[in-house]
């Protein structure tokens, strides 16, 4: 397989991988690095590409696993530094206060969701995959996908309602 063929295959979904990575890792640079790494891994596996029935779903799963590993090792690094943990809580509150418009407020709410809910919301509401596809990509049961999605949406709603009635931000 030549580079042009490969780029033609990954082209339609590389933005989706990036957006998922960014949802999980938050920082743009880290998400870009992660996406690049995933695409390079796929390129290295290009000989087997014919064997995957769905390259896109496979790539999404790879991205999920890669980012969760990243987060895990980052967390492990953070736990040693007890003081930064305290600071971390304070700064995220700071960020919430700083959220200027209501759209970036939603983004802050998203950052506080558990990883699985973040991914489900991202893959459904932003990427518009159906439940079976998401279940396949995240290695979950379709019913679990629905439950996680409903919870994520409801959490966002709850926080938005709070904000609306108290007029924070």
């Amino acid at each position: 397989m030549q580079q042009a063929d490969f780029l033609k295959i990954v082209g339609p979904f590389q933005d989706k991988l990036y957006r998922l990575a960014k949802r999980l890792l938050v920082s743009r640079e880290e998400a870009e690095d992660a996406t690049q790494e995933i695409l390079l891994k796929l390129w290295a596996k290009k000989k087997n590409m014919g064997q995957y029935k769905n390259v896109e779903a496979f790539a999404v799963t790879m991205t999920k696993n890669f980012c969760l590993d990243r987060l895990k090792s980052k967390q492990a690094g953070n736990l040693k530094l007890v003081h930064t943990n305290y600071k971390e809580g304070g700064s995220s509150l700071q960020k919430k206060v700083e959220a200027k418009d209501s759209v970036s407020w939603v983004q802050k709410i998203m950052e506080d969701l558990p990883e699985q809910q973040k991914m489900v919301l991202q893959l459904r509401d932003v990427e518009e995959y159906d439940y079976d596809e998401i279940a396949d990509m995240l290695e979950m049961k379709p019913t679990a996908v629905r439950v996680a999605l409903s919870r994520a949406r409801k959490t966002v709603r709850e926080k938005l309602m709070q904000k609306h009635s108290y007029g924070i931000g």
């Binding site: 030549q2 580079q3 590389q14 870009e32 996406t35 390079l40 609306h164």
Partner: peptide, 27 residues
């Protein structure tokens, strides 16, 4: 109105693009 930011956020999130050029190394 309280729901609007959620859908606004989703619409905005759809527009993000992977902007880093991909270097696959020499052919």
């Amino acid at each position: 109105k309280p729901y609007a930011p959620l859908f606004g956020f989703i619409a905005k999130a759809k527009k993000e693009r992977f902007a880093k050029p991909l270097d696959l190394g020499p052919e």
